[in-house]
Structures are given as C-alpha cells and as structure tokens.
C-alpha cells in the first residue's frame, strides 16, 4: 500500500486474521463438540501512518472493534502480523508488550463501563502510571491531564457516576493520553453524545493530535465524523476491509458496491435528500461471521454480483489509483 512520503507506518496489520472459538472451551472440552469458528477479522491489511487519522467504518458485526483491539494486541492474533513502528509485536510478551502498550492506547466505546466505579477520577488517571511503574517525576499531574481535556480540576475527587457522558468520555481520553502514546484507537468516540458534545470531543481530538503528534484509528459508524476528521478511510464488511483510500476519494468515488450502499443510507441533515434521492437500501442484514458466504462476502447482498467469480473467488486487492484500493471483482462496472 502506498504511503505519503514513504514514511514507515506507525501501526500496520499484515494479512491479519482473528478467529474466535478455535479452541474448544468450557463444556465442549468434554463433549468434543466444537462451536463454529467466528471469523471476526479475516486477512486484513491496513496501515496507519505517523500523525495520520484513519477512519474505520462498517455495520456492527463487521469486525471493526476486533481489528482495533488486535492492533493493540488486546485479542490474540490468529495469523498474520501486527507491526508497530516497523517491529513485529504480534507475539511479543513481557516487557516488550508493556513497552508497546505504553505507546498505543485505546479509548473505549462506553466510557462509563470502562471506568471503574470504585475509583475517583484522580485515581483513574493515575492508574496507567501505577501499572507501568512510571516514577513520580515522569508523570503528568492529574490537574494537567484534566486541563488537557478541558475538564475542571474539581472533578478529580468525583466518581465516574457523577459525570455526564461527555465528561466521562473526556476522562477516558485523558487516561489514554497519560502515557503519551503515539497511537490512539478510539472506538466510537462520539456514540451516544449530543451534537454539541460531539463537536467538542472532535475539536479536542484534533487539538491533541497536533499537540502530541498522535496517530488515530477512529472506529465509528458516523460517516459525518470521518468526513470531518479522517485523512484516510477504510470500510469493513464481515471481517474484510473492502475499500481503503483517502477520505474524499472514497466518499466521492466509492468503488465498492458496499461502500456506495453504506454512504447512501447515511442520514444527512438535508431535507432535500428525502425526495427523489432515495437511498439504495441494502437488502437484508449482515450475515453471520460464523458461516461467512463463499467468494466475495458481500455477494449475498450485492446488486452487481454475478453467479460466477463473485460467489466462488474472494476478491484480491485492486488499485483504483495509487492510493485508493478496493476488493471487488466488478469495481470497474460499479464505477461505470
């Protein structure tokens, strides 16, 4: 995949697979019966450059969160590689993985669920230092962390349940920032927030990026968010990345039929789209990753699928131009 400036990517997935349920667990150990393997992430290659913001979109069940977690080694890698600054960290352990985790952090989807209800905000913010045994003098003060995320220092002695959704989200960001990471993976950073709070969080994320030189992977289903903030956009469907390229190119000139369908269903605050411009509704729902369709995984819902190639052969990466890749047998027809 081409990168601007040919810099080494900050983080990279190479032919990454994450499958769940391969080992028999629980009662199945005795019966010998195996649950079907869930192909959560299958053969995904994706790069995140230094200071780059990559948006990752797709329906629920497409494997976005699992890919994010795999890039941080929070779920075991089945096959393929996870690279960070050029080093293979897919099977690192001990000190090596601790070093890596200092530099790559996650902002979790549900801020209230990811903050321990028994700790105060200041304890929560100091926790990363405790875990990584950072000496006192290298720590950033709680007051400063709160200031960075534009929260009042009065919150330091409060408990998570006393915070609003937007405030809890900020604490999550402050916690991720505590160790000065180089990569932040944000899982649905704006879900469940009011519009005005979304604006604030995105402004904050932008500021932090410039100040700390962080790369982001932003997992979201809100196309408005990626339109606003992402440099590149990757679209996932049922464990596969189906299209990736510069945000504007993918939005304006989507080559994959799934991307097109997804974009057309996004509600826009423009009442004129209601009439005439009916969204091309995708029929049905996303199939189960336990038993993904053969060939191209999208063929069961695709308007362009033919009965031959699409049903039998998994599409390879093809280049629309030097920076815009698509995984579809018929993308030339799709673009017309």
């Amino acid at each position: 995949m081409s990168m601007e400036g040919k810099k080494a990517p900050r983080a990279e997935a190479r032919d990454l697979c994450v499958h769940f349920g391969q080992r028999a667990a629980g009662f199945a150990k005795f019966t010998g019966r195996r649950a079907p393997v869930v192909h959560a992430v299958d053969d995904v290659s994706l790069e995140i450059g230094p200071r780059e913001v990559v948006g990752l979109v797709g329906e629920s069940g497409s494997g976005k969160t699992t890919l994010g977690k795999a890039l941080l080694r929070l779920v075991p890698v089945t096959s393929g590689q996870v690279l960070f600054d050029g080093d293979d960290v897919s099977h690192s352990r001990g000190d090596q993985i601790r070093q890596f985790r200092r530099q790559a952090q996650m902002i979790f989807q549900d801020p209230h669920a990811s903050l321990s209800p028994r700790l105060t905000i200041s304890q929560l913010l100091e926790e990363p230092y405790r875990i990584h045994r950072i000496p006192e003098e290298d720590r950033t003060s709680v007051a400063h962390l709160l200031e960075t995320v534009e929260l009042s220092s009065e919150l330091a002695n409060k408990y998570p349940h006393e915070l609003s959704g937007g405030q809890a989200r900020r604490v999550g960001i402050a916690r991720a920032l505590a160790l000065h990471p180089k990569l932040l993976i944000a899982d649905e950073p704006t879900a469940g927030l009011d519009v005005s709070a979304i604006g604030n969080i995105l402004n904050l994320m932008n500021d932090i990026k410039d100040e700390y030189g962080i790369s982001y992977l932003i997992i979201t289903h809100d196309i408005g968010v990626v339109e606003y903030i992402a440099d590149r956009l990757a679209v996932m469907y049922l464990g596969n990345v189906v299209e990736v390229g510069p945000t504007e190119r993918v939005l304006d000139d989507a080559a994959h039929p799934y991307t097109r369908a997804l974009l057309s269903t996004v509600p826009k605050p423009d009442p004129r789209r209601k009439d005439g411009h009916a969204p091309s509704l995708l029929p049905g729902e996303i199939p189960s990753p336990k038993n993904p369709p053969s060939g191209c995984r999208f063929h069961t819902r695709c308007a362009y699928s033919d009965n031959g190639l699409c049903r039998t052969v998994m599409p390879k990466q093809e280049w629309v131009d030097e920076s815009h890749a698509v995984y579809c047998h018929r993308w030339r027809t799709v673009r017309g």
Binding site: S196, I198, G199, N200, L202, N203, D222, G224, E227, Y228
Partner: peptide
Amino acid sequence: SIPSRNRRGSRLVS
C-alpha cells in the same frame, strides 16, 4: 455543530 466534510480543517462550532 454537525461534523461534515464542509467543516474539515476548521473547528466545529460548539
């Protein structure tokens, strides 16, 4: 305050 591409590069009105 709705994020969209028209507002890319500029701060969202909050």
